[in-house]
Design a protein around this nucleic acid. Structure first.
Lengths: 250, 250
DNA sequence: GGTATTAGTATACGTCGTATACTATTGTGG
DNA sequence: CCACAATAGTATACGACGTATACTAATACC
């Protein structure tokens, strides 16, 4: 509708692999594995040893074939990565029309953060750029629903999705980084030491007084966990959205 | 202070390379290049042909040495990448104590987004995890200053930094993806077609009614550019922060 | 002026993604 | 029922990449 631009045939093919059922022609030998076997093997490897360990050889070994056999199921590693992203993120949490929109959105953001922390390698893959599969859509649908209940116009709902999703992905990065370190066997203590030593360079450096003040300031009385900090920020963001909703819907 | 955990010696070395002046021993032959030459060459290559084109061979060729010569300046490609991140992001925009905090923060967020869009390959590198250099600190300082002016306690200022920075990075992703495509010679029209074709699968799919409604809805009357959309979201986020500031500082 | 130290090179290795050519296995049309 | 076409998986090989190792050559200090 909006364009006659020729779509990249490779991207188109990769997208089809995520959406269309695989044709099952009856001619040759029986396949010994399925595309899903490949994806599950890749996920298991990524979970165990990180994204760097997901090589065609390693995946093939895990499913019991040679590396080249995988190309019968995915035309390239990029195509396999596409499937990895979609399968790795899994389905979104359920929504319910009865819940206040703000509760559902809060639950969604926490679920997305948890998902990203549980599979920290997901954020290493091209997340926005890749072809988007059914799970990706389902996550969008799961936040579109409660936000639609605000009564905002569709275009504004799209805006709000960007805000919540943007904050959620961006503000999860530190936790993801920690999760990644943990997956590599680095203790939280070691990780904190490395980050702290790095940031510590600001302390005493006359160029960074304001930031040094934050680092040297006494922590809050109870001390917030990372998840609590995330939620605190999320509520500020939702405050801003709610304010807009009230203003627009009168 | 906060830990006796042994810091990773490799990470420590990489961090030092970003912060400490290189020792200039007088013994051997004169170096024909500088570490900065290497970084600048790498940046030029990344700008021209994307991060994938930044290989040790390519960088070395550009500065006129062999690939192995680069290892006299950086112990590994990761270390070079660290320098790439810091040099690539450049200095932050100036702040001024006179400006209302909200204006400075708005300017900061737009500047960061512009920076990321201008060098879309920056976001492909480990951004939060890497050792952080002076420019990284300077960007933090540049947002810490106006947020300190709100009168919030230091711990809360840290929270607000996470919110604004999280939103800014997360919400810039789509634009970055477009910028990356553009850098590869893909027209905005083609890019829109690819993304549209992909998202279009939701339209008519009974699983995604709410999201499909957003896609099929008539766009707003004037039609927002991506920068305007970003700013719209940013203002909602800042509304939420401002509300908190008013509530806390009374 | 010899000697230790350093800059840069040459060569080589292991890993990765994948192109090409093959062998083996299956359903189908004559 | 059987030749043939289509497919699954393998074997081999290639080029690119990061980098270890061993070298050659240049420079400053004792």
């Amino acid at each position: 509708m909006q364009s006659a631009a020729a779509p990249d045939p490779e991207l188109q093919r990769r997208s089809e692999l995520l959406w269309e059922a695989r044709s099952v022609p009856g001619r040759g030998p029986k396949p010994s594995i399925t595309a899903d076997d490949v994806v599950q093997a890749a996920i298991a490897i990524a979970d165990a040893d990180g994204l760097g360990a997901v090589t065609m050889h390693a995946v093939a070994l895990k499913v019991g074939v040679t590396a080249m056999a995988l190309y019968r199921y995915f035309p390239s590693k990029d195509a396999l990565n596409d499937a990895l992203v979609d399968a790795g993120m899994g389905p979104p949490p359920p929504t319910s029309p009865q819940t206040p929109w703000r509760d559902d959105v809060t639950a969604w953001a926490h679920a997305k953060r948890d998902m990203l922390c549980e599979r920290p390698w997901l954020a290493e893959l091209p997340f926005v750029a890749a072809p988007h599969g059914p799970n990706w859509m389902a996550w969008l649908e799961a936040i579109a629903r409660p936000l639609t209940r605000t009564g905002l116009r569709p275009a504004d709902v799209g805006q709000m999705i960007s805000i919540v999703d943007g904050y959620t992905r961006g503000a999860s990065d530190t936790s993801i980084s920690l999760a990644r370190a943990r997956a590599r066997g680095i203790s939280e203590r070691q990780w904190g030491a490395a980050v702290g030593a790095d940031l510590g360079r600001a302390i005493g450096d006359p160029r960074f007084p304001a930031f040094a003040a934050i680092l040297t300031a006494p922590p809050e009385s109870p001390g917030r966990t990372m998840a609590e900090s995330f939620d605190f920020g999320l509520q500020r963001v939702l405050d801003g959205i709610e304010q807009y909703v009230k203003q627009v819907t009168r």
